[in-house]
């Protein structure tokens, strides 16, 4: 109970840091309202659940990205790590015939290891995160292609069951992936709010020099967030392979951008230090609802999604700019 009241007391800060999240929330409500007003079927709660089903993997990836961006870094490798995970799982399951319970932890480990490696290079050699993760992006994609250049379908029973089973409540249903994604969000929210690792993440994003002078474990934290991002990407890759039932080196091209967009639209400052995983959840939903709206509309083509996301990115970055400028 105390936990809940604390959460509430912390949320009740009269604080403009919540402005972006509130903006996202109202945007989401507005879009949903417009959708529901125009298309009868849009009002159906299953539409919302479908947004989760179609974007569960993105949600997980974006959660990892939130950690990285909170420290003021960026991780461009996530899309490639997702693809690598699908490819690695598919090839181990299908070509090697390894059992699912071996493959699953293994691919998660590979993703985390990649993140760990990048984190070490970023921290110890003081190279800009974007260029290191860029190299990581090349590396992971390249590894995909060394495994194979064509799509490998997966028919492992566990994978298939994860893909096809539906968790039903009443008339509605979600896929197991959605549950996994939401659990990830909850764990991440907990870690950020209630552990030293989480608070150190914010501290580094707020002022890395101070964090160091205050005696915080900057090295450990920085490497940890990239490891978390790597892990989340790998988990996102697993969820994507549940969703697609295939491994392919061209999966998730450009997903890093979607993840960054979701984080930014969700109100996390790109300069670090401020933002919430719940905001990222909203950000992912905004992206999902845009897609759904455009699908429902039928007249607008799919590329409008990108244009709208770009426009939203612009608006939210501008909003961040205004807020940080006013603080000074």
């Amino acid at each position: 109970m105390t936990t809940l009241s604390q959460v509430r007391s912390r949320i009740s800060w009269p604080n403009q840091k919540y402005l972006p999240v509130l903006a996202t929330l109202s945007l989401l409500a507005l879009m949903y309202g417009v959708g529901a007003a125009n298309y009868e079927a849009f009002g159906d709660a299953q539409v919302v659940l479908n947004v989760f089903i179609d974007n569960g993997f993105l949600l997980v990836v974006a959660v990892g990205m939130t950690f990285v961006i909170l420290t003021g870094g960026i991780d461009l490798s996530v899309g490639s790590v997702v693809a690598l995970t699908t490819m690695l799982s598919a090839s181990l399951l299908q070509d090697r015939g390894w059992p699912a319970f071996v493959v699953l932890p293994l691919v998660l480990l590979v993703g985390s290891a990649l993140g760990f490696g990048m984190g070490c290079i970023i921290h110890y050699f003081d190279i800009q995160p974007f260029i290191v993760t860029l190299a990581g992006m090349f590396l992971a994609r390249g590894l995909c292609y060394t495994i194979g250049t064509s799509s490998i379908p997966i028919d492992d029973p566990f994978w298939v069951s994860m893909a096809q089973s539906r968790i039903r409540f009443g008339d509605y249903f979600v896929s197991p992936s959605v549950v996994i994604a939401l659990v990830v969000v909850l764990i991440a929210a907990f870690v950020l709010a209630y552990t030293r690792l989480g608070r150190n993440t914010y501290a580094i994003g707020g002022n890395p020099r101070s964090a160091l002078l205050m005696g915080l474990p900057v090295a450990r934290t920085k490497i940890a967030v990239y490891t978390i991002s790597g892990f989340c990407s790998a988990l996102g890759g697993v969820l994507l392979s549940f969703y697609m039932l295939s491994g392919y080196g061209l999966h998730a091209v450009g997903m890093e951008l979607d993840a960054i967009a979701a984080v930014v639209i969700g109100g996390t400052l790109l300069t670090g230090g401020s933002g919430y995983v719940l905001g990222t959840l909203l950000g992912v939903m905004v992206l999902g609802v845009i897609q759904t709206l455009i699908t429902f509309d039928g007249r607008l083509s799919s590329w409008w999604t990108k244009i709208v996301i770009g426009a939203l990115l612009f608006v939210f970055i501008l909003l961040q700019r205004v807020i940080t400028a006013r603080k000074r």
Partner: peptide, 27 residues
């Protein structure tokens, strides 16, 4: 040399936060 984005209490205690069951004991 503090982190402007964190709360006053955190700035005083970060790195040495009181914890309960491994969780930061905010109150």
């Amino acid at each position: 040399n503090l982190c402007p984005n964190l709360s006053v209490a955190e700035n005083i205690f970060i790195g040495r936060e009181p914890r309960r069951f491994g969780m930061i004991h905010w109150s």
